[in-house]
Write a protein that binds this DNA or RNA. Structure first.
Lengths: 193, 193
DNA sequence: ATAAGCACTTGATAAATGACAAGAAATTAT
DNA sequence: ATAATTTCTTGTCATTTATCAAGTGCTTAT
């Protein structure tokens, strides 16, 4: 039950006292999942918030042709949350699945609510997490709308090279909004240079 | 100084007492802007949070060819916020500009902070706003990654037809991630049916 | 160890979208 | 009211990406 990675995540985001972090993470429990295992299935309600301590995972939807479209790739350390489902108790649209073996910490909404309303630092942390996630997502929309696939690939490779060591190319392709054969061709083109 | 539209926005999101809403919106001041006017310029720090009471506006960035890429379209009633800039005091990447004549209510971070930490209902409201905005943005990423331009156009037309009565097509085109001539052709194709 | 199933690549071809330029239509400024 | 400016459309052609199918190599299960 070593919560150091979980606790350090709080410290890494903003200045906060050790005792307060320990109070916040008091109710978190740990578990692990094998690779290619579903953490949260679509059309279910997320009752937990998850901290990914180790590993790679993704969220995906099925399109009209029943192809999996990867909507997000997650890597430790980070919080993994279907905000709409967890906070508004709505069924998820996406399925959340591990890519590698993963270890997690989790807690439920009741504990989050208690902390949110009783610990000012946790409120600030929660909001900061939202702001950061929103901003990342916004950057991605901008890339999707303004850059061609090759540029998006190059940027991802530059910014998160480790993803290519841990996530299959077909998942990366759909995350970039292209087919796996297109990604393969783009990689071939670039390797020539 | 009729705050009814501002106040009603709170009531429309979740059950909350009239007196609490009035307390929250106490510090909001109103102003109006002409069409095509900048509300918040890129590379500046957003010191205000805005409620758009009437009108249409957008955010945009300039790409490497100095073309404006519309990143978001806003229409009343809604809150308009550059989260990263407002909460983390970072310079904005995007410029926020009115499209039609707009009327706003605004307040500053100090007031938001005071309410956030002293009024539980305002905390819940703030988080709900984040969740809803995040979820909308996520839906947009999914569309961008999985649907072709024509489908994205049809969906926007179905879901927000009023946008086409109030926002120039070239802005809508870049919001959809295509050029204005492509949008023109797509519209022509569809009108044939 | 072998077979089965995936992941990845590659070829040929088609579809979607972009680039650029010119003109029509609408809007705005004088 | 007229001119100037901006928006929208359309034509031609180029580029980007998708589709489908086949083949190779890697991983996994028995």
């Amino acid at each position: 039950m070593d919560k150091s990675k979980l606790n350090n995540f709080f410290h890494s985001l903003f200045p906060i006292q050790k005792e307060i972090v320990e109070k916040i993470t008091e109710t978190f429990c740990d578990f692990t999942l094998d690779k290619n295992t579903i953490l949260l299935d679509k059309d279910t309600i997320s009752t937990k918030t998850y901290f990914l301590e180790k590993g790679y995972m993704r969220s995906y939807i099925l399109n009209e042709d029943n192809e999996e479209i990867t909507t997000n790739i997650y890597y430790a350390p980070c919080f993994v949350n279907d905000f709409l489902s967890f906070f508004k108790k709505q069924p998820t649209k996406e399925t959340y699945q591990t890519i590698t073996e993963c270890s997690f910490w989790q807690t439920n909404l009741e504990n989050v609510q208690k902390n949110f309303h009783s610990i000012p630092e946790f409120r600030e942390f929660s909001r900061l997490l939202f702001v950061i996630n929103y901003s990342k997502l916004n950057d991605r929309v901008i890339e999707m709308a303004s850059k061609k696939a090759e540029t998006r690939y190059i940027n991802l490779l530059k910014q998160q090279p480790h993803i290519f060591q841990n996530v299959p190319l077909k998942i990366i392709a759909s995350y970039l909004g292209i087919t796996d054969s297109s990604l393969s061709r783009i990689r071939k083109e670039i390797s020539k240079i």
